[in-house]
Design a protein around this nucleic acid. Sequence first.
DNA 1: TGCAAATATATGTACGTACATTTAATGTCG
DNA 2: CGACATTAAATGTACGTACATATATTTGCA
Lengths: 151, 151
Amino acid sequence: MRIEDEIKQAHFQDEHQKAIINLIYTSGWLQLRQACAFKRFALTSPQFNILRILRGQHPQPATVALLIERMLDKTSNASRIVDRLEEKKLVTRTVCPSNRRAVDIRITPAGLALLDQIEESGVMQAAAHASLSEAEARQLNDLLDKMRDTD
Amino acid sequence: MRIEDEIKQAHFQDEHQKAIINLIYTSGWLQLRQACAFKRFALTSPQFNILRILRGQHPQPATVALLIERMLDKTSNASRIVDRLEEKKLVTRTVCPSNRRAVDIRITPAGLALLDQIEESGVMQAAAHASLSEAEARQLNDLLDKMRDTD
DNA sequence: TGCAAATATATGTACGTACATTTAATGTCG
DNA sequence: CGACATTAAATGTACGTACATATATTTGCA
């Protein structure tokens, strides 16, 4: 369905304006699908992303600073997302011995098992599936990269 | 800058996976720019969007249901966004006489003046500016519309 | 008429985001 | 050494989102 019909707005100033609305709308649509997929595992998308970053580091620990660097959303509050993962025993927090200001965050066996379970379930593929060909996906990547070329 | 470098992730499963990350990242990047632009007017993006919808209806009122229908984010809580606009005297709420369950929401002269001021300031153009040609923007719109074709 | 279902909005709760401030540990330089 | 800046994380506050539930009004139908 075209964006005009999705949001019941017949006219846009120009194609750029429309692309921006379309982009934000489509991103929301995707994120809703992802959130939906994670819900049966009692995880949110940011929680899932942090678990994946921690698995990437495992068995090394990560600091909050490293999580922020790797997260899509730089300004999100990693500290509080880790709070929730810690409550669920999916990660541990220990004071870093070599720098007692920092905190070593590690994924637990339960966290690793949960990631495996999610990946086996195939919900990722379902949520990520989009009706684009390989070439179209590549084209989309190029356009998005170019779009951000203003800095 | 390419998405690989933006989020310091060298590899993606495939071009689709990358496009999804890229899309969500680019949408966040755009929304941050928009939020920044509105901040000097003490408005958030959802508040601005609701004001625009109300101007579109003006001098007719809108109901909460109409706002939700027109908003990008269908599940957002229009009622509470209207609360904040009402506190700022940018909109009024009155019980709809013909259907006392519904609420007539109207933009005030102050709300109209604020929209004018924002548009005169040119921040919209600045936030919306993207380095895509007209043809590229159209291509992007087509790809995004196609991407959502799964329902 | 009267009562249940449907409708319109508001409210509650958990979570995330944006940004400012606080707390604690470390580095630095006189 | 000791004051001061810097760094790492946590905390506070306002706002938005997602979803469940509550409240009030209207509608429909026995």
